[in-house]
Design a protein around this nucleic acid. Sequence first.
RNA 1: CGCGGGGUAGAGCAGUCCGGUAGCUCGUCGGGCUCAUAACCCGGAGGUCAUGUGGUUCAAAUCCCAUCCCCGCAA
Length: 310
Amino acid sequence: MRLVFMGTPEFAVASLQALLDAGHEIAAVYTRMDTPKNRGMKLLPPPVKVLAQARDIPVFQPKNLRGEETQAQLRALAPDAVIVAAYGRLLPQAVLDVPRFGCLNVHASLLPKYRGAAPINACILNGETESGVTIMQMDAGLDTGDMLLPAALPILPDEPFGSLHDRLAKLGGETIVRALALLERGELKAVPQPKIGASYAPMIRSEDCKLSFDLPAKRVACAVRAYDPQPGAFALLGETKMKLFGASVAEDEGSLGAPGQILAVDKSGVCVACGRGAVRVAQVQGAGGKRMPADAFFRGHQSLLNEIFR
RNA sequence: CGCGGGGUAGAGCAGUCCGGUAGCUCGUCGGGCUCAUAACCCGGAGGUCAUGUGGUUCAAAUCCCAUCCCCGCAA
């Protein structure tokens, strides 16, 4: 099939790769503009652009898709379908109307749950045991279009965001390829999203990553995992901003100390008291430092052992 | 020229301001204790203090200069 692909981050790369591997013709790739990133504010291309250029696929990076010229350009590409995966831009109705089969979206949740920008994080934050991807027929709303093909995936015990992200990205690629095969045979059925059970997963703000040890251990552990490895859940230990990774529930019940108090450090990590129970955190990252095993960190920062996470 | 931290033993750090014997917590090796141990006790090995064979000095991990490398924040 002749396709146009729209996507930006690492999550979308897996889908683009899968479409290429499946032999689809990618007429062009739309992605967001290069943005200043990293040390020195270097201008970096989005991951999708890197892959597209490596395959000599034309890349377009319009500011948005509302312009008349941009839309004419898309029409000229004459795609059978537009595949969208984490593009980060809204598609106006004029764009949705261009392809014969419309625009299909790869969304990283089992709709109608977790519509929006950060479904994977929200899913882990809420302690879900199952997630998945949904191929959706896009409409003018935000992730409100008809469902075409869902694919579920169990979340592993203590699985961090990064791991689930990678597995969902892979599943997304497999599922969009499968969906297109069904579409070509006319076997893809559109099912409206149920009204009940819909939820919205907003973009992550940095303050969302601030941990509160007053919460039960289970919720603290979920919060750590939801932002592991990026951008990293954090708390203050003394004057130092500490990021925490690799959390699991150490004790489910009871009060073992003041919330945020360090109970023990060993090879498996640092054990921190919560409002109820305690969590074990395997790795930490101090201000200006790199991520390392908790026991290694505290070996060199023993005075911090008496501080309270807050 | 976005802001900032750092390079000292296998790991994580202190020492640098105020130059003067290379230190801490671990790991490792050997020995001891123990029914036993990831526990405890004793002992040992392991460092050109990133680089220059740079400058200052009687003397540089420490002060000055230059170069290389690493990392965090923010987006």
